[in-house]
């Protein structure tokens, strides 16, 4: 429905018939409201000159077919930490100008978690990417602007994942587009509700369609394992005064994504003294001073700054103390 542009595109006639041949038929077919007129003519004679006669003209308008197709445009499950944007296409596969009610449903059977729908957005500048402040926001459940027949819009679904997710937990969000004129079993009719006041008829899609977009929780976590080896003054491994204890701190990041600003701190145990110059990171020596390298060490403790550590990588820090 919407807008009553009169589209008399199909007058019977040679000129228009030729034009129609030049352009291939659209998938959605003749637009709603198109006037179809048919007139036959005959020529004959009754012994004299040729005469001609036209039949009456039969005419009717093409009704509006209500059909729609929704398809997720994300090639794979989107990793989600915090907020992300799912992308869908909504195609008007009917033959009239039609707005569609767009509804994103976060609770889909089989979900490990459900996201919050923050908003929908229409890809106003048509670049396929959500541009905050440029693309028109739409409340979930609101109606789109009319879409021309055979045309598609890109719909973004802005979601926020709940806190406390475990890595690799999966979720789906379903976007449904329903013809604003109405939906129903194919063949359902809405009298006079189509373009130019023609009847609207529900097509094979039921005038609504949906598709799901997938999300996967991308959570990185750190495992820190501390171990110690002792070398006593007598070559044994007894914790005697004067024995040297080597502490090893192994940090590994698991899951997916990355850990930002990861720093390993450790205090020098009581009754021990830090052995100066023994701090290492991944078998490379670090100076004790606070300088350009990643580590600092003092009588009270050590600190090694690892920065951003991607999931799947690990780092080992060692230092030595002497038992007092």
């Amino acid at each position: 429905m919407e807008h009553a542009h009169l589209r008399i595109a199909a007058l019977t006639g040679t000129l228009l018939a030729t034009a129609a041949l030049a352009s291939p038929a659209l998938a959605a077919g003749v637009t709603a409201g198109t006037l179809i007129e048919n007139t036959a003519s005959a020529s004959y004679n009754t012994g004299g000159p040729t005469q001609s006669v036209d039949s009456n003209t039969v005419s009717f308008r093409v009704a509006e077919l209500l059909d729609v197709a929704v398809a997720s445009q994300d090639p794979a499950a989107l990793p989600v930490v915090g907020s992300t944007v799912l992308t869908f296409s909504v195609t008007n596969t009917g033959n009239g100008e039609e707005p569609f009610v767009l509804t994103a449903e976060p609770a889909v059977a089989g979900n490990d978690f459900d996201v919050t729908i923050d908003n929908l957005a229409i890809d106003t500048n048509n670049n396929g990417v959500y541009d905050p402040g440029i693309d028109t926001l739409l409340t979930n459940g609101a109606t789109s602007a009319p879409i021309d027949p055979d045309q598609a819009i890109t719909v973004f679904v802005l979601v926020t994942a709940p806190a406390g997710l475990t890595d690799a937990q999966a979720s789906q969000v379903r976007l449904t587009a329903a013809s604003a004129t109405g939906t129903g079993t194919p063949g359902t009719t809405f009298a006079g509700a189509g373009d130019d006041g023609v009847d609207a008829v529900v097509g094979s899609t039921g005038a609504d369609d949906d598709d799901t977009g997938s999300l996967v929780a991308s959570v990185a976590s750190v495992n820190l394992v501390k171990s110690a080896t002792i070398l006593d003054p007598f070559g044994g491994n007894q914790p005697l005064p004067g024995a040297v204890v080597t502490f090893t701190l192994a940090a590994s990041v698991t899951g997916s994504g990355a850990i930002n600003d990861l720093t390993i701190n450790d205090a020098i145990p009581a009754s021990t003294t830090y052995a100066a110059g023994t701090l290492t990171l991944d078998a490379g020596a670090l100076t004790d001073a606070a300088d350009t390298d990643a580590g600092t060490a003092s009588a009270s403790g050590i600190a090694v700054s690892l920065g951003t550590v991607a999931a799947g990588s690990s780092h080992t820090v060692t230092f030595q103390v002497e038992i007092d």
Binding site: A9, A10, L11, T12, G13, T14, L16, A17, A19, A20, A25, V30, T34, I36, E37, N38, T39, A40, S41, A42, S43, Y44, N45, T46, G47, T50, V62
Partner: peptide, 19 residues
Amino acid sequence: SGQVVEDFVITNPLPAAVV
């Protein structure tokens, strides 16, 4: 009419919207 009609030909242009 009361007369015989000859060379009777009916021509029908197809509306552009149909095939």
